[in-house]
Design a protein around this nucleic acid. Structure first.
Lengths: 194, 194
DNA sequence: GTCTATAAGAAGATAGAC
DNA sequence: GTCTATCTTCTTATAGAC
């Protein structure tokens, strides 16, 4: 065992630990609900160090959302990486439904961030828009794999599946997560049926 | 013209004016983003008067959400009050799509409140759950009017339509509101098809 | 019921020593 | 790069006069 591994937790750069702690707290309780002070206390550092790494709190918020975006893209890309289009769909629905059932699930971090950031020109909102565009593009290509004709039909299918994705994550948070998988599967099947 | 009408704006009880001002600001910018001070200044009253009417800020938040719930129930009930089930569906979709296209649209106030209130036992979250139950019940009966068999099939249809409603409101806020009506209509038609 | 004044704490952010 | 100490502003909420 290397020294690095032994002291990994304390040796990990403060910057990373700040992002990890912020990710947990921002997602669990909301961004405005969490002060910089609470993250500083959670990591065990000081204000000065915090603001040396992140000039403003919003810079840390952006780092948090970038991490969530990376996770989503990796997980969804992997779930869809199979030859059969229906398996790919099942894999994607599985990731969404499974996430919804995890303890501490609080819905989509980007929808939640949108609720807290009203200014559409704010960097947070730009990142939200980017990530939603990624999802829409992903669903368009999945729809095409499922046999929906490219062009307007696939665009429309992508929009409809995106609505279902959003609704599934909202339902997983505010309603009954146990119903998400069945309802989402049925609905996506219906909107992509020939 | 009565004296009441002439002085309506200033004579309207402070309590109502506080709720109206709060509704605009909470919805437009987020609940935690708006301080009691800003609402007090918006109405032109004082802290003491504010806290006499609403012991805590959360009491005003609840009044705001009650107002939104009343509006939704009234508008949706009216839109569905027609003999033909497809007209009723069109009316409901019309209300949702039209709302999404209004300037200042910020999505569903209950989804947004859920993002800001993480404690499921908080009165705000209880109100959110109540209003979502109302919607689900409404969609279940609409699905039955559209020919979906009562029981499990109507329950499932209600869950799927609810996902689409949520997704439509999210899309109207974070994506392109102009696409909401067509996509929502197609998707609900698909999930309720025999 | 409404006002002025103020408490008491938390918020985001910075100065300057080490 | 990190620390102690501090600044300024904002936040929810109250006391006591009228």
């Amino acid at each position: 065992m290397t020294n690095q591994t032994q002291t990994a937790d304390r040796a990990r750069p403060v910057r990373e630990r700040l992002i990890d702690c912020a990710s947990e707290l921002f997602y669990a309780e909301g961004i405005r609900a969490i002060s910089a002070d609470r993250i500083i206390a959670g990591v065990g550092t000081t204000k000065a160090t915090f603001y040396r790494h992140f000039p403003t709190k919003d810079d840390l918020v952006l780092a948090y959302l970038h991490g969530k975006a990376d996770w989503e893209r990796t997980a969804i890309t992997a779930a869809a990486d199979t030859p059969d289009a229906y398996d790919a769909l099942g894999g994607v629905v599985g990731v969404l439904a499974n996430s919804s059932c995890q303890p501490g699930f609080r819905g989509c971090p980007f929808i939640n961030a949108g609720a807290e950031y009203a200014d559409v020109t704010h960097p947070v909102r730009r990142l939200v828009a980017e990530q939603r565009q990624w999802w829409t593009d992903f669903f368009r290509s999945l729809a095409e794999r499922l046999g929906v004709p490219a062009g307007a039909p696939a665009d429309s299918a992508a929009g409809q599946i995106m609505m279902l994705r959003d609704g599934a994550l909202v339902a997983g948070y505010l309603d009954d997560p146990a119903l998400v998988e069945a309802n989402l599967t049925k609905a996506i099947t219906a909107v992509t049926a020939p």
